[in-house]
Simulated assay, not measured.
Amino acid sequence: MATMPKSLLWARTDTTGTDHVLFDDRHGLTARGVAPAVDPIPYTCRYDLATDENWAALRLEVSVEGAGWLRTLRLERASGRWRASTGEVGDLDAALAAAGAPGAGLPGTEEPDRLEAALDIDLYGAPLFNTLPVRRLGLLGAEPGQAHRLTMAFVRLPSLEVLPAEQVYTPLGGTSVRFASGRFTADLDLDPDGYVVRYPGLARRADHPPS
């Protein structure tokens, strides 16, 4: 396995959890991350992401594991079409029910054609994935105020259910980009390379003190 030359660590601010990623961004992005969290039940997410040289997503492999259960997902795009393959050991729904949490959807997607317009992947709770549209569209150097409406292949955790999600990215000037999805809006603080420093309501980089 190739070593990765760069590393970032985020602390979750919405729950107890972290996200540590090792990556290489010299020719698009190749990244491996580990993200434990406790909501709605304790789990550890491991992911492996690859984009093309223009930062459009090509492949995501994810495993999510908790006490007595494990789910896996491989999501890949080729010739403009998405394909998802999944696996499951144990019973996530039983673990959720024991914790008094709602049941999870099935991993993957039964309607991959609904993802046809997506060039980006968004993994729940993982700030790295916000960098994909920022870099792909050149938003740090874009005209402030111009909204970019995008379809994401959104991966829920811990279920690994994949859904199309409409999101809006609007450059605000400097290293700030406004993110919106439905009624939710957050102004993301980024570093000069487009990686999230502070995501209000979700996470902040461990190398930056709280503001």
Rank of each mutant, 00 (worst) to 15 (best):
A2C: 12
A2P: 15
M4I: 07
K6S: 15
L8H: 00
L9V: 05
L9M: 06
W10E: 09
A11C: 06
R12C: 12
T13E: 06
D14V: 12
T18S: 13
T18A: 07
H20Q: 15
V21N: 01
R26F: 08
G28T: 13
T30V: 14
T30R: 15
R32F: 08
R32C: 05
G33P: 03
V34L: 04
V34T: 12
V34C: 01
P36I: 05
P36C: 08
I41K: 07
T44C: 10
R46T: 14
D48A: 04
D52Y: 06
E53S: 14
N54V: 14
N54P: 06
W55Y: 10
A57P: 14
R59S: 09
L60F: 09
V62A: 11
S63E: 11
S63R: 13
V64T: 06
E65Q: 10
G66P: 09
A67S: 12
G68D: 06
W69I: 06
E76D: 07
R81N: 00
R81W: 08
W82L: 12
A84N: 00
S85G: 02
E88T: 13
G90D: 03
D91R: 08
D91V: 10
D91M: 03
L92W: 04
D93R: 07
D93N: 15
A94G: 02
A98W: 05
A99S: 14
G100M: 01
A101P: 13
A101R: 14
G103L: 03
G105C: 00
G105P: 02
E111L: 03
R114T: 00
R114K: 11
L115F: 01
L115P: 02
A117W: 02
A118E: 07
L119I: 09
D120R: 02
L123R: 00
G125F: 00
P127Y: 07
F129S: 04
N130E: 12
N130T: 05
R135N: 07
L139S: 12
P144H: 07
A147P: 10
H148R: 12
H148P: 00
L150Q: 10
R156C: 01
R156V: 06
S159A: 14
S159K: 04
P164C: 00
A165T: 11
A165L: 15
T170Y: 00
L172C: 02
G174V: 02
T175D: 15
S176N: 10
V177P: 04
G182S: 12
L188T: 08
D189R: 15
L190D: 07
P192R: 05
G194N: 05
G194Q: 05
V196L: 01
G201C: 11
R205D: 03
D207L: 03
D207V: 08
P209S: 11
